[in-house]
Design a protein around this nucleic acid. Structure first.
Lengths: 259, 259
DNA sequence: AACCAATGGTTCAAATAATGAACCAACGCA
DNA sequence: TGCGTTGGTTCATTATTTGAACCATTGGTT
C-alpha cells in the first residue's frame, strides 16, 4: 500500500460519532505501527489536515480540509446546496433526508438532516459507505450509471443485509429498468429492516449521476399520503440540486420531461 | 520532503481562479517529475481527494474533501456559520467581508462575501496566505496570540507590501497593545494601497484566536458613519461566530465585557 | 507509596516504496 | 508531414519508510 494512501486512510477513520481520536486509538483502528501512525499524522498536521486538541492531544480533522472544501464549493457548491435541500426535504416530509456521492466504486454518505416531528427516526452515519444493490440511493445511481459500472457492481458478490435484500443480479437489472421508467428508486428493508426509503439521482454536467438524494422513513409510518409527499418533494429536491450544481439530466430521464 | 507532504502540496495548488489543472501544469507548478506527480495524483484520486473532469482529463478537488469537511462541520461548524456571518456582514456594511483561519504559522483565507451595493469592491482570493503584520486580520490574531507565536512572527523579516506597511517590530507591538484595548484591528493600506480594513478575532474553546473576521473597503468610501457601522457589525459578527463554534473569549477581551 | 497499564512520543538499522530519465500514443496546429 | 504539446507508463536506482524497542508521563489501583 502506498504511503500517501496509508496517510489518507487515517483521515477516513474520523466519524461524526468519533471526531477526535488519540494516537494509540488511531494506531489500533488503522492496524499500523504507532511510530508509523505518528509520523504520518505529523505530515498531515504540518499540512493542516489534522490538528491536536485538548489536554489529551487527540487528533481531529484540521482547517485545511475546510479550506479545500470551500475552494471546491466555489465552483461546485454541493455542500451548501445539499445542506439547504436536505433541511427543506426533512422539514417537508418529517423524515430523515440524506445525500450520498459516488466516489470511484463507492457510494459515500455526505450529509443528512433529521426532522424533529417524531420521537423516532431513521438514524444516519455519515461515514457509512452505502451498498449499491441494497439501498435506494445505490439503485438510483445504478439506474443511470455507465453499463460497465453496473456490470462491475453486479459482478461482485451481492451481500444480503436483510432477508429482504435482493441479491440476484438479474432481478436487480429488472428493477433498474423499472427505476429508469419511474425516475425514482424505492427500497423496503433492503439494507436495514423496517426502513422504507426513496431515492432520486443527482446528475453532474456530463449527465452521469454524481450521487443520490434520499428520504428514509420507518415502514410503519409509510402511508400512501406520506409516500406521495416524499415522491414529490424528493423529485423537486433532486432536480433543484442537479440544476444548482450545473448538472444536466440525460434525455432518457422521465422527470426531466416532467420539469 | 516526505511523500505525504508532496502529495498534499499538490492539493494546495488548486485555487478559485484555477479549480481545474492538468497533469503537465501540476507538474510544472509543483516542480516534481511528471511520473511522480502522476503517481501521487493516482493515490489522491483513489482516496477521492481529486477527480478528473472533462475531455482534457484535468484534475480538481474531489468529493472526499467535501465529506471530511462535512464531518468536521458536524462538530465545529466553521464553514456554515462563517457563510452566514459573512453574508450578513457584507449586506449590512455594503463592503467585502472575509474570514481567515490560523493554520500553524500561517493565516489562510477561508471564505469571503461581496456586496453588490457598489460597482467597485475590494477583491479577495481565497487561496491567499495573509500576512500577520500587514493585514487587519493578522494583527487581530496577533493581539491575542501566545507570546511565543508573536515573537516568532515578529522575528521574521517583515515585508513592506506598500509604503504604508509598518515593519518595525516595536511599533507593531505598540499597535497590538492598542488593539487589545479596543478589541478590533484597523489597517489602512498596510497590505494593499487604498484599502481600509477592520478585523476582529474569532476565538476557539481554548480562548485562543482561531482566525479573524474582517471587512475591507476602499479608503475613499470610508466615512465616519460607515466606520461606525462596520465596527458594530464586525463586533457582533465575530462574537456570533465565536459563540456558535463553541469558542470562549479571554477575560482580557474588551468586547466580551461589552456582551 | 508503590505498582501497573495505559497514553503520547522517539530512534535508527533494515526493509520497502518512491523516484525520474526515457519512452509511448494521441492530438492540434502550421 | 512534422512539430510540440498533452496524458500516461516503465523499471533500475535512490530515497524514504518502517517498526521493535525504548522513554517519560499520567491516572488508577492496591
Amino acid at each position: 500500500m502506498g504511503t500517501v494512501t496509508k496517510a489518507l486512510s487515517l483521515l477516513g477513520l474520523f466519524t461524526q460519532i468519533r471526531p477526535e481520536i488519540g494516537l494509540s486509538d488511531l494506531t489500533r483502528l488503522s492496524g499500523m505501527n504507532k511510530a508509523t501512525t505518528h509520523r504520518l499524522l505529523r505530515e498531515l498536521q504540518a499540512q493542516g489536515f489534522v490538528e491536536q486538541v485538548g489536554p489529551e492531544r487527540a487528533y481531529r480533522l484540521g482547517p485545511e480540509v475546510l479550506r479545500l472544501a470551500a475552494l471546491r464549493e466555489a465552483t461546485v457548491p454541493i455542500l451548501s446546496v445539499s445542506r439547504e435541500v436536505l433541511d427543506r426535504l426533512s422539514a417537508a416530509t418529517g423524515e430523515t433526508a440524506h445525500i450520498s456521492l459516488v466516489q470511484g466504486a463507492k457510494l459515500n454518505a455526505l450529509s443528512h438532516a433529521y426532522s424533529p416531528r417524531y420521537a423516532t427516526r431513521v438514524m444516519m452515519d455519515d461515514t457509512e459507505v452505502l451498498s449499491f444493490h441494497a439501498t435506494g440511493s445505490g439503485l438510483a445511481v445504478l439506474a443511470w450509471a455507465e453499463p460497465d459500472f453496473v456490470n462491475a457492481v453486479l459482478a461482485e458478490r451481492l451481500h444480503a443485509f436483510t432477508p429482504d435484500t435482493e441479491t440476484s443480479a438479474q432481478a436487480i437489472r429488472a428493477r433498474l429498468d423499472d427505476i429508469r421508467r419511474d425516475g425514482m428508486a424505492e427500497s423496503i428493508g433492503g439494507y436495514e429492516a423496517d426502513v422504507h426509503s426513496h431515492a432520486a439521482p443527482v446528475f453532474g454536467p456530463d449527465q452521469r449521476p454524481i450521487g443520490a438524494l434520499a428520504v428514509a422513513a420507518p415502514v410503519s409510518r409509510m402511508t400512501e399520503t406520506l409516500k406521495q409527499t416524499i415522491r414529490a418533494e424528493l423529485a423537486a429536491g433532486a432536480r433543484d440540486m442537479t440544476q444548482r450544481i450545473g448538472g444536466l439530466y440525460p434525455p432518457s430521464f422521465p422527470a426531466a420531461r416532467a420539469a
